[in-house]
């Protein structure tokens, strides 16, 4: 690890700590109310969903329109797991229970990622898109008809384990892991498939394995997001995981910039908070939202950040450089 990397780690860690401190103070002093804390928690979950979808859509370059399906699997499986633990009367600290939930949600969704990805990733473009929609719908219809998870009426009585404190740090960890994944040899191999699949194979990359890996990683983190959702809402119903929800996540990723993780984060924040802000316009809310979406795409089709990442270190460097230039030019005047 060189000097520059160390510096950038330090800056980012400090920034995250500061951000957390800020929210912590705001929440403790009741400057922001519970309703808004709820929005922040949902935003964190949507960030995880968008980041994980970006692995398939941005890194691998495949149209995946069924992300809500993996989220549903993660949500329901983790909820069943924690319910079983609680019902069995096993005592464990809530953070440990949450960890179990995350692990179960992520792993079960990841397994489904392998099962679904292996046969379908031969399909290309829009055909893959429609097949992912299909799987997500089948999953949703399964939960509507499946008695043990409450069917269409929903699953009640899930332990509420998620609060802003833990969801904030889980989101940070997930973001960092997906980031490092993208910058590892595995991430590079996946990105090379997006760039040119034939060239990638000719460069010795086992493309099939990496496609499934990318798909599975995305499913894993989506399942983890689902587990968070389940243990925040404490209630699940199949209708939440409908087709439009998958589309919503996809919109977030494209709007942020395919392949840009910081773009996904930014976009998830904007697109989760914005509709809430527009709530006072109630019936015009989605009209405005959709118009903004259309206008945004017409004027910035590559998304907010395109494929580039926002780097706090570079940003600070630039700020300092500008200041330096200013001081030297000031000095010159004297």
């Amino acid at each position: 690890m060189d000097q520059k990397k160390k510096k950038s780690y330090l800056i980012n860690t400090a920034a995250i700590a500061l951000l957390y401190l800020l929210f912590f103070v705001l929440i403790q002093t009741k400057t922001i109310n519970n309703y808004f804390v709820g929005i922040m928690i949902m935003t964190c979950i949507m960030i995880i969903m968008a980041l994980s979808l970006n692995i398939v859509a941005g890194f691998l370059g495949q149209m995946a329109l069924g992300h809500a399906g993996f989220m549903a699997i993660g949500a329901y499986s983790s909820a069943m797991a924690t319910k079983a633990i609680v019902d069995a009367g096993i005592e464990m600290p809530s953070i440990l229970l949450l960890l179990v939930a995350l692990l179960v949600g992520g792993l079960v969704a990841g397994i489904f990622g392998i099962l679904i990805g292996t046969p379908t990733l031969r399909l290309r473009g829009d055909y893959l898109g429609i097949v992912t929609i299909g799987f997500a719908e089948i999953i949703r219809i399964f939960f509507i008809n499946f008695g043990p998870t409450g069917g269409a009426a929903g699953l009640k009585g899930i332990s509420k384990l998620v609060d802003f404190n833990n969801v904030f740090f889980i989101t940070v960890i997930v973001a960092v892991l997906i980031f490092t994944f993208g910058r590892s040899k595995h991430g590079r191999a996946i990105i090379s498939i997006r760039e040119d699949e034939i060239a990638s194979e000719s460069a010795g990359v086992p493309t099939t394995i990496y496609k499934v890996l990318g798909f599975t990683m995305a499913a894993f983190f989506a399942g983890l997001g689902g587990a968070l959702y389940a243990h925040y809402q404490a209630f699940l119903e199949p209708s939440k995981f409908a087709f439009m929800f998958s589309i919503e996540m996809f919109v977030i990723v494209v709007l942020g910039g395919l392949g840009s993780l910081t773009g996904s984060i930014l976009s998830a924040i904007v697109l989760t908070v914005l509709p809430e802000m527009l709530r006072e316009f109630s019936e015009y809310r989605l009209l405005i939202y959709s118009l903004l979406l259309i206008i945004m795409m017409i004027f910035r089709p590559q998304g907010m950040l395109g494929r580039s990442e926002f780097s706090l270190t570079d940003f600070i460097d630039k700020l300092i450089m500008r200041k330096n230039r200013k001081t030297t030019s000031d000095g010159g005047e004297k």
Partner: peptide, 20 residues
């Protein structure tokens, strides 16, 4: 057929993949 949106060295690193 290069990986157009990646840097020159990343292009080479992808092919070096099996030795990492």
């Amino acid at each position: 057929r290069l990986f157009k949106d990646l840097t020159a060295i990343e292009n080479v690193k992808i092919a070096y993949h099996n030795f990492i």
